[in-house]
Every structure is written in C-alpha cells, then in structure tokens.
Amino acid sequence: MKPLEEFITSWKDTPSKTKLAFTQIYEHLKTLEDITLEFKARPKVSFSLRPRHSSQKNRSLFAMVDVIDDDPEERWLSVCFYKEMITDPDQAGELIPEGLLGEDGYCFDLYEYDKDEIKYLKQRLSQAWKNAKE
C-alpha cells in the first residue's frame, strides 16, 4: 500500500483534523480479517480507500472511505456503505439512491474530527465487513 502510505505522509493536517479521522479509520480497517484494501487516487477530486472481504463475489468492496480533495487545504471525508450491509440507528447517514457504484447506499460526511462519530463509523465498518461475507 505504498501509494496510500505516501498519501498519508504527504497530507498536512488542518485544525479540522480530518487526517487523524482518516488514519484512525484506516487503522481500524487493518484490524479486520480476510480483507484487501484498494487505494484509488484522483487528485483534486478524491482519494478513495476501498476495503473488500476476501469472500465477496458480487461486489468489489463493502465500504468506500473517500477523502474529498476539492479543496486540499480543507479535505473532508465521505464514508459510504451499501444500504443492506449496515444499520444506522442514530440516523447519521444520508441515503443516496444509486450512490455507491450504482446501488443504494448510506454516506456519512465528516468535516472535522469527532471521536464519537469515528467510533460510530468504525462500528458501521465492522458491521459491513461482517455482512460482506458471501
């Protein structure tokens, strides 16, 4: 994951601490078993981390963690899941019809670091990982 590590190293964090939020999410993903991580860089658009469970057959990912790069001085995160892979008991996400690779999904936007929101997103990631097994 050299390009991902280079991206993280070169990212200068801001007072919003979205880099810290991203790295905590990334570290959580690395604790999940039987996954691969794909990194897609599209500078000035997004940097996308895409986890996939090794037993997934029909989908290329179970979540998408995007660093939105429309303003590199103030990047923000959008973490998305397929609708049927997670629950959203706090109703913190936004349902996006056909918003995740052409399928309905929930997206959670994070504009600044919030430990409770990070905890909630980690719970959703673990839930999606568990439900991704086919």
Rank of each mutant, 00 (worst) to 15 (best):
E94Q: 15
Q91F: 10
L100M: 14
K12A: 02
D13Q: 05
K40M: 06
W11E: 04
R50W: 04
K19R: 10
K115S: 15
A41S: 15
S60P: 05
E27R: 10
S60K: 15
L37Q: 06
M85R: 13
E74G: 09
E103V: 06
R52L: 10
D34P: 04
P43M: 09
D114H: 03
Y26N: 12
L4D: 07
L37A: 04
K119T: 15
L20R: 02
K115L: 08
R42F: 12
D90G: 09
D69R: 02
L20E: 09
E112T: 04
L49N: 05
F81N: 07
L32N: 03
P72Q: 06
K19P: 01
T14R: 07
E27I: 01
Y106A: 05
Y111T: 09
E98G: 11
F62S: 00
P43N: 04
F108A: 08
A132E: 03
D70M: 11
D88T: 07
E103K: 15
D109G: 05
D13V: 05
K17C: 02
S16A: 15
W129G: 06
L37W: 00
K115Q: 15
L121G: 02
M64K: 11
E117V: 11
A21Q: 02
I96G: 02
L121M: 09
D109S: 12
Y120S: 08
V45W: 13
D116F: 08
S55H: 10
S46G: 04
L29M: 13
E73Q: 14
A128I: 07
L49A: 06
E33M: 06
D88K: 07
L32F: 06
R75M: 10
Q56G: 01
L95V: 10
D13S: 00
L61H: 14
E6C: 08
D34Q: 13
R124S: 10
L77T: 01
D114F: 03
K115M: 11
L121A: 06
F81I: 04
S10I: 03
L20D: 05
L77R: 02
V67I: 11
V65L: 11
R75L: 03
L32G: 03
L29N: 05
A41V: 01
G102K: 08
Q24I: 03
